[in-house]
Amino acid sequence: MTAAPAGRPRTARWLLRLHRPALIVWACLVVALAALLLALRGPLTDAAAEGWRQYNACQGRGRCTYDQDAILRYKDFAGYANLALNALPVLVAAWAGAALIGRELESGTARLAWTQSTSPARWLTLRLALPAAAVTVGTGLLCRLHRLAWAAGDGRIDTAKRWYDLLTFNAGGPTVAALALAGLAAGTLAALLLRRTLPALIAGAVATLGIAGAAALLMPRLWPAVTLTSALDEDYPNVDGLVVDQGLVSATGARLPIPDCDTGAGCSAAYDRAVGYFTTYHPVSHYWPLQLTTTALLLAVTGLLAAGSFLALRRLTGPLRTAGAAAGTPSTDTLAGAAA
């Protein structure tokens, strides 16, 4: 009656000891980035906004002074924050492939654990549970702070990135948190398939970059876009948003691609068929629909990668059972098969 309650605290303490170095590094990274984002939301944004106010007031007045250093400082630190948050999923994938799973498989300590009181499936679950929670909480906090920092400068700083800038879009919502979980699963799967630390590190990072690239390509098409048209004697409709497509419109309403005007004949023929221009784009009101649909897609990919990890683990271990899960101990043949 008392064994189960006592086992849970022991398991929690064991997980904390197991992941303590990585948790300390992760906590320091999150705190450092949080401090940077809070500075961006407050004094850095205020100083840059004042610098831009001074600069705009100078227009038409000839020589005057403005705080250029504050403007450049904001631009640099905002760029660093964007790059850091977008790099987190790759770092998570590399750590999962190398230190979390790959190193234990390469050294043989994982197989030793499987012969004791932990089944392979439970071993993998325990190793992923706490990192997944830490990644979710940490990236979720940073995404919220990034969104607040960006909103503080929106409309006040002329060089601030727009919401549809890819790095800004990813860092300001749950997309990067979902991508970090996908990186954790990708690194785990790479380690289980390769069973070597360095190859798993590289494969996990490359796979995460591939997932991020695919998500960026699919993201504009995950939610219906808005189309605006203009007459042929005008230019393309002026929009403030994420442009998906542009081209010409024929008299029947058909959309024509932008013509190749390197050859005069082809260009003239294309414009002879057209009566106007069109622009398909996502306005700012589509920000959260795009964020949520992209996050859902990435979480689905994470689920597939996690399922693949358990399948790869089962293939690696075969019918291996622990002493606590079945009567007796694993057979010599089973352990030999796992080692092979």
Results as ranks from 00 to 15, higher is better:
residue 332 T to S: 12
residue 301 V to F: 03
residue 244 V to E: 07
residue 55 Y to L: 15
residue 296 A to P: 04
residue 28 C to R: 02
residue 313 L to E: 07
residue 261 C to I: 10
residue 115 T to I: 12
residue 250 S to A: 15
residue 83 L to Y: 11
residue 242 L to K: 04
residue 122 R to A: 12
residue 270 A to T: 00
residue 77 F to Q: 05
residue 127 R to W: 04
residue 120 P to I: 01
residue 206 V to P: 00
residue 337 G to M: 15
residue 133 A to C: 07
residue 70 A to N: 04
residue 25 V to A: 15
residue 182 A to P: 00
residue 336 A to M: 12
residue 116 Q to E: 10
residue 10 R to A: 15
residue 57 A to K: 05
residue 217 L to T: 06
residue 252 T to I: 04
residue 70 A to T: 03
residue 336 A to N: 10
residue 111 R to E: 10
residue 251 A to G: 11
residue 189 L to H: 00
residue 325 A to C: 10
residue 3 A to H: 09
residue 137 V to K: 02
residue 17 R to L: 06
residue 78 A to G: 10
residue 46 D to T: 06
residue 180 A to T: 05
residue 43 P to S: 09
residue 116 Q to A: 13
residue 110 A to S: 14
residue 245 D to R: 08
residue 287 Y to W: 12
residue 219 M to E: 15
residue 193 L to K: 01
residue 305 L to D: 06
residue 137 V to E: 06
residue 162 R to P: 05
residue 303 G to K: 00
residue 107 S to W: 07
residue 160 A to G: 05
residue 72 L to V: 01
residue 207 A to R: 03
residue 296 A to T: 07
residue 157 I to S: 08
residue 209 L to P: 03
residue 203 A to Q: 03
residue 184 L to M: 00
residue 276 G to V: 01
residue 273 R to Q: 10
residue 196 R to F: 11
residue 59 Q to A: 14
residue 119 S to K: 04
residue 136 T to P: 01
residue 89 P to E: 13
residue 128 L to R: 08
residue 88 L to R: 05
residue 284 V to T: 09
residue 224 P to S: 13
residue 257 P to S: 12
residue 86 N to D: 10
residue 31 V to P: 05
residue 77 F to C: 02
residue 216 A to C: 07
residue 322 T to D: 15
residue 221 R to S: 13
residue 182 A to S: 02
residue 98 A to V: 06
residue 181 L to G: 05
residue 188 T to R: 08
residue 165 D to I: 08
residue 323 A to W: 11
residue 237 P to I: 00
residue 132 A to W: 04
residue 76 D to Y: 09
residue 277 Y to V: 03
residue 141 L to K: 02
residue 91 L to Q: 00
residue 283 P to Q: 03
residue 270 A to G: 03
residue 86 N to P: 02
residue 139 T to I: 11
residue 331 S to W: 06
residue 49 A to W: 02
residue 298 L to C: 04
residue 33 L to I: 07
residue 206 V to L: 06
residue 117 S to Q: 14
residue 182 A to C: 01
residue 115 T to V: 12
residue 112 L to I: 02
residue 13 R to L: 14
residue 333 D to G: 14
residue 208 T to E: 00
residue 67 D to N: 09
residue 277 Y to I: 02
residue 79 G to M: 04
residue 327 A to G: 03
residue 48 A to I: 02
residue 157 I to Q: 08
residue 113 A to V: 09
residue 207 A to D: 08
residue 70 A to D: 05
residue 53 R to N: 07
residue 215 A to C: 06
residue 281 Y to T: 08
residue 48 A to F: 03
residue 87 A to Q: 06
residue 231 A to K: 08
residue 314 R to A: 15
residue 293 T to C: 04
residue 337 G to D: 15
residue 234 E to F: 09
residue 190 A to N: 11
residue 42 G to L: 11
residue 73 R to V: 06
residue 289 P to C: 05
residue 50 E to G: 11
residue 240 D to N: 11
residue 26 W to E: 11
residue 120 P to E: 01
residue 12 A to M: 14
residue 309 S to E: 13
residue 253 G to V: 03
residue 96 A to V: 07
residue 109 T to K: 02
residue 277 Y to A: 07
residue 144 R to L: 14
residue 106 E to P: 10
residue 78 A to W: 11
residue 143 C to K: 02
residue 234 E to Q: 09
residue 276 G to F: 01
